[in-house]
Amino acid sequence: MTIDWWTIGLQTINAAVLIWLLARFLFRPVAKVIAERQAVTEADVQAAEADRTAARADREAAAAVLDKVAEERTALLAEARAEAERTRVSLAETARADMDRERQRARADMDRERAELTGQMADEAGILATEIATRLLTRLPPDVLVSGFIDGLARSIAALPDPIRAEIGRDGPVPLRAARALTGPEQDQLTRQLTEVLGHPVGLVITPDPSLIAGLELTTDHAIARNHLAADLDRIKSELTAHD
């Protein structure tokens, strides 16, 4: 076996040249484009990372805005509730005041109506009592309508103060109303007893007045002396009405 040194040299040169050519036309261009793609990919990754960071920041900002909106909503709701509560209380107080006022007005109206009704009933009762008394007195003897009231009238006049009693009949006859026309003996008895309690003679102008029902009434400038059933009924009605 022989070694061809020329061939070894040529093949060495060939291999070296081939390696250089392949580096020039194959490996470097391919490696370069791979590096470029890696750079592009890296840039894309960095851009995506930046976008993700921006998106995260936007999301956090949106969350902050949502939190703020939620807080504002809560505050507005609380304020609205407070305002509604104040309005409710105010309306309730106004309604209560209105109700109290209406209640007082209704009570006043009811009191007034009841007073009016009571007065009306009292008047009707008085009329009815007068009617009853009048009808009942028709069953009694006629002298009862006057004679039984002469002593009472004399006692009423005797109870008057002396100056007033002294003035009665000084200036002339005194008007006197009677439930009916007095008889002669009744006039004499009345004149005699009045003269006794007055201490001086007195003239009478007697006027029959059936509205007195029974009894007498003496009228002077300074005093009125009543002793008849109509006055009693009026007094009783006034007392009953006052008690109500």
């Binding site: 061809d4 020329w6 061939t7 040529l10 093949q11 060939n14 291999a15 040249v17 081939l18 050519l21 392949l22 036309f25 194959l26």
Partner: peptide, 22 residues
């Protein structure tokens, strides 16, 4: 310089490889 077959074949391979690579 004697040119043997391996050298000639190598040149052909070089041409093919470099040509395809380029």
């Amino acid at each position: 310089v004697p040119i043997a077959e391996p050298v000639l074949v190598t040149w052909a391979l070089m041409a093919v490889l470099v040509g395809l690579s380029a």
